[in-house]
C-alpha cells in the first residue's frame, strides 16, 4: 500500500514537473523576430528595390519573412535558406550573391583585373619618369654660383657690360 502511495506521489510530481517544463520547451521552438531579421537583412525582395527584407513594409516582404520563420522552425540553416531563396527568386535577392557565373566576374575578377591594370599603368608611368634625362645640369656640384651661372648664360649682356667698362676706363683716363 505504501509502495502504491509512493508511486502515485512520484507520478504526480513528474506530471507537475512536465507541465511546468513543457511551455518552456515550446517557447524554445518558437522562432523570434530577431532570428528572422538576422537572415532577412541579407535578402532583398525584387518588388521593393534596394530595401532589405527586415525593414520592408510591403505584404510581399512580410510573406517572405514568414517563409524564413517557417524554414527556421523546420530547423533549416541560414545557408539552406539562402540557397532556397536564390533558387526560387534568383541570386539577385541575396545581399551577398554566390560567386558563380556573371557575379563571379563582376564581383571578384573585375576588381582584380582593374587593380592589375592600374598597377601596370602606374609602373609604366614611373619607369618613363625615371628614364628621362635631367633637364638642368647640376651646377652646384661644379662650385658655380647662381649669379655666375646666369651671367655666363647671357653672353649678350656680358658683352654689353664689357663695353660699358671700357668706355668708363677711357673717360677716366
Amino acid at each position: 500500500m505504501q509502495r502504491f502511495i509512493h508511486t502515485v506521489i512520484y507520478a504526480l510530481l513528474f506530471l507537475s514537473l512536465f507541465t511546468m517544463v513543457q511551455p518552456l520547451l515550446a517557447q524554445d521552438s518558437v522562432v523570434s523576430d530577431d532570428e528572422v531579421n538576422e537572415i532577412a537583412k541579407d535578402v532583398y525582395c525584387p518588388v521593393c528595390e534596394s530595401t532589405p527584407l527586415d525593414v520592408c513594409a510591403t505584404q510581399a516582404c512580410a510573406d517572405w519573412r514568414e517563409l524564413i520563420r517557417t524554414k527556421l522552425g523546420e530547423g533549416q540553416s541560414k545557408e539552406e535558406i539562402f540557397d532556397y531563396f536564390s533558387r526560387q527568386y534568383g541570386d539577385g535577392v541575396l545581399a551577398d550573391p554566390p560567386a558563380t557565373g556573371l557575379s563571379l566576374i563582376i564581383l571578384w575578377v573585375l576588381p582584380i583585373v582593374l587593380v592589375l591594370i592600374a598597377a601596370l599603368f602606374f609602373s609604366r608611368i614611373m619607369r618613363n619618369l625615371r628614364s628621362k634625362p635631367a633637364a638642368v645640369p647640376d651646377t652646384a656640384a661644379a662650385g658655380e654660383s647662381r649669379v655666375e651661372r646666369d651671367v655666363s648664360a647671357t653672353p649678350v649682356k656680358q658683352a654689353a657690360g664689357d663695353d660699358y667698362l671700357a668706355r668708363i676706363e677711357e673717360e677716366v683716363g
Partner: peptide, 12 residues
C-alpha cells in the same frame, strides 16, 4: 595583355 584587359573590360 594590358590592351586585351582594357578591351575586355569595355566589352563587359
Amino acid at each position: 595583355a594590358l590592351w586585351v584587359a582594357v578591351f575586355s573590360l569595355l566589352a563587359l
